[in-house]
Structures are given as structure tokens and as C-alpha cells.
Amino acid sequence: MRVIEAADLADRIEELCLEVSTALPADVTDALSRFRAREESESGRRVIDLILENARAATELGVPLCQDTGFFTVYLTLAPGDAISGDLEGEAAGAVARATERGRLRPSVVRDPVGARVNTGNNTPPLVEMELSRAQESTLGVMAKGGGSEMASRLAMLAPGAGWGGALEFIVGMVEELGARACPPLVLGVGMGGSFDSVTRLAKKALMRPLDEQTADPAVRAREEELVSEVNRLGIGPGGHGGTVTCFGARITEAPCHMAILPVALSVSCHALRRKTVPI
């Protein structure tokens, strides 16, 4: 058995936080460029050009892609035979605080949510998600998610009879209602199945999956394609200024669930899908 010391992950978490804040991943810029060709609105194409130009400027200047530098989630996935030792939450919080200082990130986290909402000043605490996996190697991932897109995310507990049609209707309806506020073009992370608590994690973690990675199950792949195509009929467009590209990717993760329920969760990402996963 390999024991990973949490303290040994701190520097890598800090570097990942800094990298995702200033550099848009290649799979995201590639997908944006690909969808630009499908945009019928001239102003929509111009917005996509500006998004790509913004990404180049952020990386070149070393400034954040967006003033909303987001709420950080740290994902640790342990492969069989690996274990973690030490205070991962504490190490992750320290890493986020140092990245906030070094990267000149905006402190965007408040405590006492329905009370004084005092800013913690350094984006702590991050959310730490640890899970076991049967994958070959353990991984460490970081996501920075903005408040605007998180506000457009939703959960529905559907009846099993609703099926994919009902799930699709729910998701497209939510994007129609809230998508223009969430900095489109969007990437949609969807969870289906599982339970009330796990389906939202599935949806958000689906956003970690690269947009250029082909979904293994052909039925799920077809659903992802149908979702993108249906959302792009809404007309919201890049920047919400009207157009045929409201969404440039969907990632769906499914899980077994109780026979009485069909949980469906939508985790919306703005065009600045900021995340990276590395093997450890």
C-alpha cells in the first residue's frame, strides 16, 4: 500500500489553483473554436473571439481570466492500494490561501451565509471531495467555479416514468430560464441516478471530464449530443446577446439509483471552465 501524505499535495494544489485561474484548458479553447463555426450571429462570433482573446491576455499577463475567480473544489481520487494520511482539508485550505495571495485572486467566499456574510479574505475554505475509484492511478484535481454559473445549477427528483425525455425537458428548461445569466456559451455537467446528495456531485464532477474525451457508452454519448443540440435551439447565444451557440459541451455521468426515483442534477459552467486533473 502507498500512503500519500496530505502535506505533499499542498504545493501541487496551489499550482493547480494558480494555473486554472489564468489559463483556459486546451480542450475548452478547442471546443470554443469549433463551435464558433456553428454560430450564425455575427455578434455571437465576436463574443467567442473575445473570449479566446481574453484567455490569451490572461495567460500572457498572469491575471485571472475572470474577476470572479471562483470557489475552489479540490478532488482527490484514490486508486486501489493508495491511502491518504494527514490533514487534507487543512493543507488544501492553506494552498488555496497562498494561491489567492500569489495569484492576486479575488476573495469571494463569505461565512455566515444568511447572517453577516463576512468575507474570509482568502477564498478558504475550499470544498474537498475525496472518493475511491478502481482506476489505475490516483488523481488530484482542482476546479474554480464562479458564482454566476453556480446560481444557474439545479436538482430535480423526477419520477422514473419521466425518463430521458423528462430529464432533457428539465435541463433545457433550466437553461432557458437561467442560462443567459450564467455567462454563456456554457458547458453543462449532468448527473442522472444515484441519490439526492450524490447526483449533484456527479453533475459537478462531470465537468472535470475533458470535452475532447469520447464518452464510452454510445447511449450516453448520444444524450450528450442531443442535449447540446437542444440547448443551442434556445437562441440565448454567446454572452447572452443572441445566437445559435448557447452551449459548447455537455458531460453526463450516470449511476444506479433506487427504483422509485430518477434524480437529475445540472451543474452549469460558464465559458471559463477552469479545471485540471493530474495523476499523483
Partner: peptide, 10 residues
């Protein structure tokens, strides 16, 4: 007046 979200480095 509306601007575009997420062009903040520019």
C-alpha cells in the same frame, strides 16, 4: 448597459 461576462482580463 450590458457588457459580456468573463472578459475580465481584457
Amino acid at each position: 448597459l450590458a457588457a459580456v461576462g468573463g472578459l475580465s482580463a481584457l
